[in-house]
């Protein structure tokens, strides 16, 4: 088995780890690190029978994940303090939300940037409050990238904190303004859920919609194996509520993201054996195989493989993001830069 496939197989069924040989462990660990899944893998294999050396490596990965969790929660808290005077709802997204709400998807999960969602009409005030509290602009103000973000993206240009060196992405919706689906950002915020400590998270169905949008309606699927693992964990947890699948179907339609959500469910079932409602997921499509191949395109040295397939998905990501004329202009500017 190749690296990506091996990572997926062990996450899906950790008991197969007992049969791995030395070189397979090296492949598994390198691929899991490359996909930023080493913490999740280490927690998944906790208590399983693994070689002593592997146990030492996994124990270190679990300690590291625990420390990252502390940092993620602290960063969320610092953001809450900076934005509290504005009196607006601040919704945590992705990894930070999983950690802050203690969801199963947070187990061992790596957290990079802090992602938050705020009402669009408060963007200026939020940016000013963050700049006043020690965050700084990463992109040159009024440069092409900066203007591009402000005009066309679903988030502000990234800010980075001066002393803590952590990035924050402030979103006002979950897809670029140039994408064809138009998610209902007001509904995302209106139906968000307050958690302890004064911050909010998306409602369960919206959380899946966001994860699916991020993975299948935006971006080139790089690092997608991790995002799909989030979806698996979330679906398994949320599905304990019998009303969940119906809600998911409603919300996917409302945000114009039915196809992305259906694809997320099918790919999660295909790669991680996630139990899904076929009425929402739909029939398997031939093209799903291409998506799966792209998600698993990593060898046992941690290298990306299948360059043509990856390039095709890179092209697709731009196609999804921009109408053709705008894409032409964007590529022209980037090529000259």
């Amino acid at each position: 088995m190749r690296g990506g496939r091996l990572v997926a197989a062990v996450l899906r069924a950790p008991e197969i780890a007992a049969r791995l040989a030395g070189e397979e462990w090296n492949a598994l660990i390198a691929a899991a690190r490359a996909e930023q899944l080493i913490g999740s893998l280490a927690c998944r294999l906790d208590g399983h029978d693994v070689p002593e050396k592997v146990e030492r490596l996994l124990a270190a990965a679990r300690r590291d994940a625990a420390q990252q969790r502390v940092q993620a929660l602290w960063e969320a808290e610092m953001t809450r303090r900076a934005l509290a005077p504005l009196g607006i709802p601040v919704v945590l997204l992705k990894g930070n939300a999983f950690h802050a709400a203690g969801l199963a998807a947070s187990t061992g999960r790596f957290v990079g940037d802090l992602d938050i969602l705020v009402p669009r009409d408060s963007l200026e005030a939020v940016e000013a409050a963050l700049l006043a509290a020690g965050w700084e602009r990463l992109k040159e103000a009024d440069g092409y990238d900066d203007l591009y973000y402000r005009r066309w993206m679903h988030e502000l240009p990234p800010l980075i904190h001066r002393t803590r060196d952590r990035m924050i992405d402030v979103h006002h919706t979950i897809l670029p303004m140039t994408a064809r689906p138009r998610p209902d950002a007001d509904a995302l915020i209106a139906d968000s859920i307050a958690i302890d400590g004064g911050l909010r998270i998306l409602a369960p169905a919206d959380m899946i919609v966001h994860a699916a949008a991020h993975l299948f309606a935006d971006g080139d699927l790089a690092g997608g194996l991790r995002n799909l693992w989030d979806i698996d964990r979330l679906l398994r947890q949320f599905a304990s509520d019998p009303a969940f699948w119906g809600q998911l179907d409603d919300r996917a339609r409302r945000h114009q993201l039915g196809p992305a959500v259906a694809r997320a469910l099918r790919l999660s079932a295909r790669i991680y054996d996630t139990p899904v409602d076929r009425a929402v997921a739909g029939r398997d499509r031939l093209v799903d195989r291409l998506f799966a191949a792209r998600l698993l395109a990593r060898n046992g040295w941690g290298q990306p493989v299948r360059p043509l397939l990856r390039f095709a998905f890179f092209v697709r990501s731009h196609w999804l993001r921009m109408p053709p004329l705008m894409l032409a202009r964007h590529l022209w500017v980037k090529a000259r830069g």
Binding site: N26, K53, W301
Partner: peptide, 12 residues
């Protein structure tokens, strides 16, 4: 060396 390695380095 041990069979299971702590780190992978690539020169590519």
């Amino acid at each position: 060396p041990e069979r299971i390695c702590d780190f992978t380095v690539r020169l590519e």
